[in-house]
């Protein structure tokens, strides 16, 4: 029963992805490996589309992933399952502990989780690099130097202070133009 599976998996993501939309990416990548609802390269496209369309990125990605898995009902179920844990948790916090983020234990938990979220997103980048920066061969992977060079140049540009505030849309558009020009 795909709807139940979707609900269960996205509820889990909603519960364990802490720190916003980007934190859901490693979980969504693992889903593609586990169920094959979408390929890794489809997933990378989904991330780009989710960042360039209206709405919170995390919700856009969940809706997209759910749609790929099981059409419109899948999109609805994935999105509602994703927000459900937070809905309950936030209401409990609003009712019982309004100074939640000042609580020392909460701070301690979060101090532990923050470096981990960064690591898990790097893990997701490594997974994504298999389809965007490496070429699959019979014996494994070999680097695609054109793609790697483009990625490094884009990354360095992003770290230039004056370009830091550019909207993600600009980078995605740049990626599209580069892809068309270099026939990637």
């Amino acid at each position: 029963m795909i709807y139940l599976t979707l609900f269960y998996e996205f509820f889990k993501i909603g519960l364990f992805a802490i720190g916003g939309g980007m934190a859901t990416i490693p979980f969504l990548i693992d889903l593609s490996a586990k169920y094959g609802w979408y390929t890794t390269s489809e997933f990378a496209n989904m991330v780009a589309i989710s960042q360039s369309t209206p709405g919170p990125v995390g919700i856009n990605m969940a809706t997209y992933a759910g749609f790929q898995a099981a059409g419109i009902p899948g999109a609805l179920i994935a999105t509602f399952a994703l927000v459900l844990p937070a809905l309950v948790i936030i209401m409990l916090i609003a009712k019982f502990m309004q100074n939640f983020s000042d609580n020392p234990i909460v701070k301690a938990i979060f101090d532990g989780i923050r470096p981990t979220v960064a690591a898990l997103i790097l893990y997701a980048v490594l997974e994504l690099s298999k389809i965007s920066l490496l070429i699959t061969t019979d014996s494994g992977y070999r680097p695609d130097f054109t793609s790697i060079t483009i990625c490094i140049i884009l990354f360095i540009l992003m770290e230039i202070p004056r370009l830091k505030k550019l909207h993600p849309l600009i980078w995605i558009a740049a990626g599209a133009v580069i892809g068309i020009v270099f026939k990637l």
């Binding site: 990378a44 496209n45 991330v47 990625c151 995605i172 990637l184």
Partner: peptide
Amino acid sequence: HAFAGIRIAVCAMMLDTVLLMIRKG
């Protein structure tokens, strides 16, 4: 072709996020 390029940009953007999160966390 466009999406192949976009996927590379996504990798770079996610690396940027990792760096930001390392700085903060």
